[in-house]
């Protein structure tokens, strides 16, 4: 039985192989050309081949040489930050910053162990006002305060 002695190297190697193969897969069908006349897939294929190779060596290494373990993933943080970002993207035009900024603030704040409704609501209010005054009026970022869903 082969034991993985360096999980972080093992997974990094796997990730490299994944990305390398992904680029190789999408580079198929494109013109490779020649060294004299490089086609659109010339450089990408060389690079992704190299990346797959590095991935394989890294995995082999992870079995032979010891390394660092992977510490626990912050799943709650990953989820909250992702959701907050996506929701902001979905809301910013249609609903406007008056909804998008509080949504972003509250959901990301919820990722913290020290989340507290009152503090989070106060922060949301302050940040929304700040965004309106500084970004929209001050710097002229074209974000609607109240979005197109509500006003024509």
């Amino acid at each position: 039985m082969i034991a993985i002695r360096s999980p972080s190297d093992f997974w990094a190697g796997l990730l490299f192989i994944f990305f390398g193969s992904l680029f190789l897969y999408h580079a198929r069908g494109m013109d490779f050309g020649s060294a004299l006349r490089m086609g659109p897939s010339f450089f990408p294929i060389i690079l992704s081949g190299l990346l797959v190779l590095i991935g394989i060596i890294t995995i082999v290494r992870s079995v032979i040489v010891g390394g660092e373990p992977i510490t626990k993933l912050a799943l709650k943080g990953m989820l909250a930050i992702t959701a907050a970002g996506l929701l902001f993207a979905a809301l910013v035009r249609g609903a406007g910053i008056i909804f998008a900024v509080p949504a972003l603030t509250l959901i990301s704040a919820a990722a913290s162990e020290r989340f507290h409704w009152r503090t989070a609501l106060i922060m949301a209010a302050i940040l929304t006002i700040f965004c309106g005054v500084v970004f929209v009026y001050g710097l002229g970022v074209p974000m609607p305060v109240i979005g197109t869903w509500f006003v024509e």
């Binding site: 930050i81 970002g85 910013v92 603030t105 704040a109 922060m123 970004f135 710097l139 970022v141």
Partner: peptide
């Protein structure tokens, strides 16, 4: 930090959107 990072999130989001 729990006071700070939602603010950073807002700045990142607005910055990238703009």
């Amino acid at each position: 930090y729990h006071i700070l990072f939602p603010g950073i999130m807002v700045f990142c989001a607005v910055g990238v959107f703009s």
